[in-house]
Structures are given as structure tokens and as C-alpha cells.
């Protein structure tokens, strides 16, 4: 399988295959964008280019639901969770790699065990917990339950293993406290791990819908995907396709922008979510 042996015909066939694939992935998004800009009567009939374009559907979305507020909520929630996941996961990963202590293996196995628990098992009791703590309809319900990520711990643990012990010991001799070693020496050297954990966490929280739908009922506290979901399912869109699609575009744009800038990081990070085993 190397370049020299690939004949021209095979090469062309491969490219055609790849292009068809690319069209299948991109065309729906382009159609959605154009439909959100098209006048309502056009949506049912155009294939690529509507008769005219305008922002009418977007104006309606902004009039009907608090999109900006929801965007802000999503940012607050996702960033808070990402911050804590990085801090707590690195702390735990650090403890698991650089210390010998009683129960270390037990903790590691508990982490692995927890990761293999499907959420279906804990969904109901977790909701009840939120109710009993009085956290429903607050940012607490959206953030605190996510503060720990087993995968995050595993990623940091693996990364810290590659950092030579000497670095750690030298810092200790210099009289650094352990926390200081972690946060000012190890973490700055663990950027790839941080990026991976951060992107995975951020994307996971940003895109989640089920949990917000369950714990948030106050429109002012809804996350963007939740708000858009309820908008699309409920009656507020008044079955206007353009408005629905415009709301979907608004939900897609922040992620697509981030993705186009950090595409490589996204791909490697999200692919590493497969290293669960």
C-alpha cells in the first residue's frame, strides 16, 4: 500500500469516493444555512439557492427565546465544569502516579468501574438528589455533578507517568509544596493532556441536553441546546421551518467556529475518548 503502486484509475476512484462522502457530510449543513436565510415559502422548494435571502428567521428566534442568555448560561456552565474537571482530574491523576498510599489501587479500580456504569442507572437517583439538595433550577445542578471525570483522571495519570520523577523530586528538594509542584511545574508541562481533557469536557457539557431538560425548568437558566430543543419541540416556533432551522444554526455556529480554528485538537482529543479500555 504505497504511493508508487496506486494506479491512476484507483486514485481517481478513491477521490470520487472521498468527494461524494464530503458532499454527503457538508451539503445538509449548507442547505440548513441557506434555508435559515430563505423566505419561508422557499424552504420547501429550493435545493441550493433560495430566491432571496434575509435575516427574518433569525430576528424571530431572538424575539421569541432568550438566545443570548442561554448562550451565556452554556458558556458559564461549560467553562466552570471544564475548569474543575482539569483541576480535580489532575490532582487525582497526580496522586495516583506520584504517591504510594494505602488504597491507591482500590481508587484506580473504582474509577474504572465508575466509568463503565451507564448513566441510565443513576439518572433517576441523581435527579432526586438534586431535588433534595434544592439544586434544581440553579447552576449547581448543571455543574457540580460533572466536576469529576474518570476519563480525565486516566488521561492525566497516563500523561504524568511520562514526566520523569526527577523533575518532581528536584522540585521537592527545592522546598516546593506538593500542590505547588502540581500546579506550577507539572501542569504547565502537561498541555496536551489539559487540552484533551478540556475539549472533551467542554464538548460533552456543551452538547448535553437530557440532564438540563430534567433539572432546569426556568427559561432564564436554560442552556443553549436545551432552549433550542424545547423551542423546536414545543409550540413557540409555530411550525415555521425557517425559524427552527435558524435556531439550529445559532446552536451550531459557536462550535463550528471553534472547530475550524482548533480542528486538529478536536479530532485527536475526541478520538482519545476511545481509549477507555
Amino acid at each position: 500500500m504505497n504511493l508508487k503502486r496506486l494506479s491512476g484509475i484507483k486514485k481517481t476512484a478513491a477521490y470520487i469516493f472521498l468527494f461524494i462522502g464530503a458532499a454527503a457530510f457538508v451539503y445538509p449543513f449548507i442547505w440548513m444555512l441557506m434555508a435559515s436565510l430563505a423566505p419561508e415559502k422557499d424552504i420547501a422548494s429550493f435545493a441550493l439557492w433560495p430566491t432571496s435571502i434575509g435575516l427574518g428567521s433569525y430576528v424571530q428566534v431572538f424575539e421569541k427565546i432568550p438566545v443570548l442568555r442561554a448562550f451565556l448560561n452554556s458558556m458559564i456552565v461549560s467553562l466552570t465544569v471544564t475548569f474543575f474537571v482539569v483541576v480535580f482530574s489532575s490532582m487525582t491523576g497526580f496522586a495516583l502516579t506520584h504517591y504510594e498510599f494505602k488504597g491507591r489501587d482500590a481508587v484506580f479500580y473504582i474509577i474504572i468501574f465508575t466509568m463503565s456504569l451507564p448513566f441510565q442507572l443513576t439518572l433517576i437517583p441523581q435527579y432526586i438528589l438534586m431535588v433534595k439538595l434544592g439544586w434544581t433550577d440553579s447552576y449547581l445542578a448543571l455543574t457540580v455533578p460533572y466536576f469529576i471525570s474518570g476519563l480525565g483522571i486516566i488521561i492525566f495519570r497516563q500523561y504524568f507517568k511520562t514526566i520523569p520523577r526527577d523533575l518532581f523530586d528536584a522540585a521537592r528538594i527545592d522546598g516546593c509544596s506538593d500542590l505547588k509542584i502540581l500546579f506550577s511545574i507539572l501542569l504547565p508541562n502537561a498541555k496536551p493532556a489539559i487540552i484533551t481533557v478540556a475539549i472533551l469536557t467542554f464538548m460533552g457539557v456543551w452538547n448535553d441536553v437530557l440532564w438540563p431538560i430534567i433539572v432546569i425548568r426556568n427559561e432564564n437558566l436554560m442552556t443553549l441546546p436545551q432552549l433550542i430543543t424545547l423551542f423546536a419541540v414545543g409550540g413557540k416556533a409555530e411550525s415555521q421551518l425557517g425559524v427552527k432551522l435558524a435556531s439550529a444554526v445559532l446552536l451550531a455556529v459557536p462550535v463550528v467556529v471553534a472547530y475550524s480554528f482548533f480542528q486538529k485538537y478536536f479530532i485527536t482529543s475526541m478520538a482519545s475518548s476511545g481509549m477507555k479500555e
Partner: peptide, 11 residues
């Protein structure tokens, strides 16, 4: 951060 979170959720 914790404090600010609990302020947000105060009823």
C-alpha cells in the same frame, strides 16, 4: 467560584 455559584442559585 463556589461562592459565586451558590449566590447564583440563591432563592
Amino acid at each position: 467560584i463556589f461562592l459565586s455559584l451558590s449566590v447564583f442559585s440563591c432563592r
